[in-house]
């Protein structure tokens, strides 16, 4: 097991924490923004609660544009914005704005799909009971689509983890950065494979958690 000596475990642990930090903080904001945009897309569409063609088209366009821009390019475009917001363009925190910008439209789209799956009849029934739009969103739309929202969040989280590895290219830190800078560039296979294995384990764990939660909360 001599190859284990090639690894600086403190460094590996720091990178692991950075990855977890970047993914979880960006996931948190992605869920908030994604839900807001997703609800906006859903309620303003032609069969929605508050039909607004103009707002719907604009939101739709922004979501599509943000999803079309490759993540690596998005990061570069956002450098001035990041510097203004975080004060630096290096380190884990500096990666957050671009991660959130990239993942929110993706999650918004998944939310919208989840809302479309909600039985129209239940929404009609709530209207017939005299529910306000806000009550329909909070008491029908969100709870009824909850399993899909959770598995969507998991898919987004996994994407975010791979984005953090790419964010390593502009010096964000994390396991991906470690695997690239120390494992690949400096030809340290032990670091390359260990970092990759840890990322894989995180992803597998997330997927397992997602499946478990979905089965637990889905009462259909």
């Amino acid at each position: 097991m001599s190859w284990l000596n090639d690894i600086n475990w403190d460094q590996m642990f720091t990178a692991f924490i950075e990855t977890i930090y970047m993914s979880s903080v960006s996931l948190f904001f992605t869920i908030i923004f994604g839900l807001i945009i997703g609800i906006l897309l859903f309620v303003t569409n032609s069969q929605g609660l508050i039909v607004n063609k103009f707002l719907n088209k604009i939101t739709d366009l922004i979501v599509n544009i943000l999803r079309a821009v490759p993540f690596i390019i998005l990061m570069i475009i956002l450098i001035p914005f990041t510097q203004a917001l975080v004060g630096s363009m290096l380190g884990a925190s500096a990666a957050l704005p671009s991660l959130i910008f990239a993942a929110s439209p993706f999650y918004a789209r998944l939310c919208c799909i989840a809302f479309m799956e909600v039985d129209k009849g239940t929404i009609e029934a709530s209207k017939a009971m005299g529910a306000s739009n806000w009550q329909i969103i909070t008491k029908v739309l969100l709870p009824e689509s909850f399993p899909a929202l959770v598995s969507g969040a998991c898919v987004t989280a996994i994407s975010l983890i791979s984005y953090t590895a790419m964010a390593g290219a502009i010096g964000s830190g994390g396991l991906g950065n470690l695997a690239y800078q120390y494992g690949f560039v400096r030809r340290n296979d032990a670091i390359l494979y260990t970092a990759t294995a840890i990322i894989t384990l995180i992803v597998l764990g997330l997927q397992w958690l997602s499946d478990y939660l979905a089965a637990k909360i889905d009462k259909r």
């Binding site: 009849g121 239940t122 029934a125 017939a128 029908v140 009824e144 009462k219």
Partner: peptide, 13 residues
């Protein structure tokens, strides 16, 4: 004004 439906339209959650 209560209303009932052919497909019941209950909230499964």
């Amino acid at each position: 004004i209560g209303m009932i439906f052919q497909h019941f339209n209950l909230l499964w959650s």
